[in-house]
Computed example of a mutant assay.
Amino acid sequence: MKTKNRLLCTLLVLLALTPSVACSESTDDAHMEWWRDARFGMFIYWGLYSVAGGEWKGVDYGKEQGGASAEWLMRSAKISKEEYRDTLAPKFNPTNFDAAEWVSIAKGAGMKYMVITSKHHDGFCLFDTEATDFNVMDATPFKRDIIKELAEQCETQGLRFGVYYSQFKDWRHRSPGGVLSNEEYLELVEKNLDELLSNYGDMAVLWFDVGGNNVIEADRQGARVAAECRHLQPPLQPPGAGGTAQVRRL
């Protein structure tokens, strides 16, 4: 049932019974033991799309598009990047957000880790970044680093923490449709990863999404991203496409 007060986030519980994990060059996967043992975690989708809740100008795109996810609203409703930002960013002000409470709920339910969308396909970042002003600190009235607050609480309460990051698909920044060339966009991705892997402690999970139709380009970008991850946090596994969990030893 719909309500006027839409949920700002969608919580997806991951029952990691048979997790899909990218292969590394090494056959030794002892660092994966914690992931196999954890089996139960929280995956949080949260961004500007949460404000709209799947609706745009009276149309429910979840129904119209055969159940399309709310985070795909910008593409489903064919919203320009200017209108998307100007309409939704000023409304993103979740003053009741309490990282300590979220982590406590997850831990109390028996979950072993938490993963949240640091940047989804709309290009909006839930963390403080210098790579783009399309982020929670610069574009919204909230002006709090959500990723940092959750990372700190996970460390305090003993829950493993990780982030989802859309490294290939970005409707705001990446050409076509964006303003950056592919090379410039890769530099944005690498800057984002530098910030996420340098400023938020150890990452238990990096959940990359998604590949593209151009296999050569995807492989080239994947190689650069992999090199960046290994440089900043060496135990990290190489990134893959299609929502594959990337797990490191903590």
Rank of each mutant, 00 (worst) to 15 (best):
residue 2 K to R: 12
residue 2 K to Q: 11
residue 3 T to M: 10
residue 6 R to T: 11
residue 7 L to W: 09
residue 7 L to D: 13
residue 8 L to T: 14
residue 13 V to W: 12
residue 15 L to G: 13
residue 15 L to C: 12
residue 16 A to P: 04
residue 17 L to D: 08
residue 19 P to Q: 04
residue 19 P to M: 05
residue 21 V to Y: 06
residue 23 C to S: 13
residue 23 C to F: 12
residue 24 S to Q: 11
residue 26 S to C: 07
residue 27 T to S: 15
residue 27 T to E: 15
residue 30 A to V: 09
residue 31 H to A: 09
residue 31 H to E: 07
residue 38 A to F: 01
residue 40 F to A: 06
residue 40 F to E: 03
residue 43 F to W: 01
residue 45 Y to R: 02
residue 50 S to E: 07
residue 52 A to N: 11
residue 53 G to Q: 06
residue 53 G to K: 03
residue 54 G to H: 08
residue 56 W to N: 09
residue 56 W to M: 06
residue 60 D to S: 08
residue 61 Y to L: 00
residue 61 Y to C: 00
residue 68 A to M: 14
residue 69 S to R: 12
residue 69 S to C: 10
residue 69 S to A: 15
residue 70 A to H: 08
residue 70 A to Y: 11
residue 71 E to D: 11
residue 72 W to H: 10
residue 73 L to C: 04
residue 76 S to G: 05
residue 76 S to I: 05
residue 77 A to N: 03
residue 77 A to E: 05
residue 80 S to P: 08
residue 80 S to L: 10
residue 80 S to Y: 03
residue 81 K to N: 15
residue 82 E to Y: 01
residue 84 Y to V: 15
residue 85 R to G: 13
residue 87 T to S: 11
residue 87 T to E: 14
residue 88 L to D: 00
residue 90 P to A: 10
residue 90 P to M: 07
residue 92 F to I: 03
residue 92 F to P: 00
residue 93 N to D: 13
residue 93 N to A: 12
residue 93 N to V: 02
residue 95 T to S: 13
residue 95 T to N: 05
residue 96 N to M: 14
residue 97 F to G: 01
residue 98 D to Q: 07
residue 101 E to C: 09
residue 103 V to Q: 08
residue 104 S to G: 12
residue 104 S to P: 05
residue 105 I to F: 12
residue 108 G to Y: 00
residue 110 G to Y: 02
residue 110 G to L: 04
residue 111 M to K: 04
residue 115 V to G: 07
residue 116 I to V: 15
residue 117 T to D: 07
residue 123 G to N: 00
residue 126 L to Y: 06
residue 127 F to C: 04
residue 127 F to E: 01
residue 130 E to C: 12
residue 131 A to R: 02
residue 132 T to W: 03
residue 135 N to L: 08
residue 136 V to T: 06
residue 136 V to G: 03
residue 137 M to T: 06
residue 138 D to R: 15
residue 138 D to T: 08
residue 139 A to N: 08
residue 140 T to E: 02
residue 141 P to G: 06
residue 149 E to V: 04
residue 151 A to W: 01
residue 153 Q to K: 15
residue 158 G to L: 00
residue 160 R to A: 09
residue 160 R to T: 04
residue 162 G to I: 00
residue 163 V to C: 02
residue 164 Y to E: 03
residue 165 Y to G: 03
residue 169 K to M: 14
residue 174 R to K: 15
residue 176 P to N: 02
residue 181 S to I: 02
residue 182 N to P: 01
residue 184 E to C: 05
residue 185 Y to K: 00
residue 187 E to P: 00
residue 187 E to T: 12
residue 189 V to A: 09
residue 190 E to Y: 10
residue 192 N to Y: 02
residue 193 L to V: 08
residue 194 D to G: 11
residue 194 D to I: 13
residue 196 L to Q: 01
residue 196 L to A: 02
residue 197 L to H: 01
residue 198 S to D: 05
residue 200 Y to V: 04
residue 201 G to S: 00
residue 207 W to D: 03
residue 211 G to A: 03
residue 215 V to S: 11
residue 215 V to L: 15
residue 217 E to I: 11
residue 219 D to N: 10
residue 221 Q to L: 14
residue 221 Q to N: 07
residue 222 G to I: 09
residue 224 R to A: 08
residue 230 R to F: 03
residue 231 H to I: 08
residue 234 P to C: 12
residue 236 L to V: 06
residue 236 L to G: 03
residue 237 Q to P: 09
residue 238 P to T: 10
residue 241 A to D: 14
residue 241 A to G: 15
residue 241 A to R: 11
residue 243 G to S: 14
residue 244 T to I: 14
residue 245 A to T: 07
residue 246 Q to A: 15
residue 248 R to F: 07
residue 248 R to C: 05
residue 250 L to W: 10
